[in-house]
Design a protein around this nucleic acid. Structure first.
Lengths: 208, 208
DNA sequence: TACTGAGATTGACATTGTCAATTGACAATG
DNA sequence: CATTGTCAATTGACAATGTCAATCTCAGTA
């Protein structure tokens, strides 16, 4: 018999297919992502992706999780560029990193926050990846709250932060905001608005 | 010859098809919206929709515009429920009306802010409908600015308002926020945050 | 050497969007 | 009144796609 694949090998091939699929998605859009094309781009035959994914929905879900993990990693790195104790600045950096990701990977950004089946909540794995993503900002919110900076509980402000940022980036990814200058203008206005709405009066936004 | 259809009749049949298509969309999702099913639901034959729409993309674009017009009408009505000179309250009502619309018509909401072709901006008609929609809030922003309430120019704050609200409603429509209580919590927190970030210090949020 | 069971490929089919050809009805014309 | 031209509407046909099922290919085993 043909040697059975180890789970590591399976994971590796899955990862290869996912990478390839994400490339097609970002370069030619979701409509261009057909299983036949993916197979061709990966140098395998038509049905091969079915050996690694139950169906197209499962492939796309795996793409979402991979995309989210990339965003999470980028946000974590961005936060580390701010001083250890300046949580507000860390949150700014996280917001900017999301915006950057959305600008560079609009199709992936859209996919990542869109479950396929309308009317169905995200898969458990997808949800988990989203929570890991949100956790990056939420932990900074909690620290800020411990410093007494915040006007509302950190989990609630984190939701507002996430939702607002998501709207902005979505509009850009959907090309409803068409140019980068406008986007950056709204982004910085939003940054200022949220900071001013989040932070308790009497605190300087960013003590130097 | 068969009597040529008047432009009114054409518009009427287009409107019928659009209504029917929006029903299918909201009840069974975008994937269920096939031209064949639409034809069947409308009691016409397979190809008939092509007499009124160039292709499926044109139909869907018309659906977007119809959906936006409904939102615009609802927002206008909602604004009228607040006192004539309380622009901030009018903006709150507009925000609530968008949220309501998103809760009741998630699939239509998603469609309305999603051009089909990824990487392509909205069609001119679509863009126009979006601008008409935004104008409802923007005019109130301008009035508020004339009263000296706002911390930044009204068009800029309007963009922030729109983007933040859009993010919140999108997350709910995509079922990334799953329950209504959480949604309402974030919505009201966002309302408070934006009001506090928009309004110049020294003004009461809503003078009575 | 023949067999087995895993991965990999190919065949086949239903669904869908859409172009092209056909049909059907009726007003204008002779 | 028969004919005809024209436009709405229907049906035929095809390519693309997702996916099930059958087949194929071989390395290891008996």
């Amino acid at each position: 018999m043909v040697r059975a694949l180890s789970t590591d090998e399976i994971d590796e091939r899955r990862a290869t297919l996912i990478d390839s699929a994400l490339s097609i998605l970002e370069s030619d859009g979701l409509a261009a992502l057909t299983l036949r094309r993916l197979a061709e781009a990966s140098g395998v035959s038509r049905q091969t992706p079915y050996l690694y994914f139950k169906d197209k929905a499962a492939l796309v879900d795996a793409m979402r999780i991979a995309g989210l993990n990339r965003m999470t990693a980028a946000a974590t790195t961005a936060a580390a560029s701010a001083p250890d104790d300046d949580y507000v600045e860390q949150l700014r950096q996280i917001g900017r990193s999301y915006a950057q990701f959305g600008l560079k990977n609009p199709a992936v950004y859209k996919l990542v926050f869109t479950p396929i089946r309308p009317d169905e909540p995200p898969s458990p794995e997808h949800k988990e990846a989203i929570e890991a993503n949100q956790a990056v900002a939420e932990s900074r919110m909690k620290h800020a709250a411990e410093d007494g900076l915040l006007i509302l509980p950190p989990d609630r402000l984190n939701n507002v932060f996430w939702a607002a940022l998501h709207g902005l980036i979505s509009l850009r990814a959907e090309k409803l905001i068409t140019d980068d200058e406008t986007f950056e203008q709204i982004r910085s206005d939003m940054e200022q608005t949220l900071a001013s709405g989040f932070i308790r009066k009497g605190f300087r936004p960013t003590p130097k």
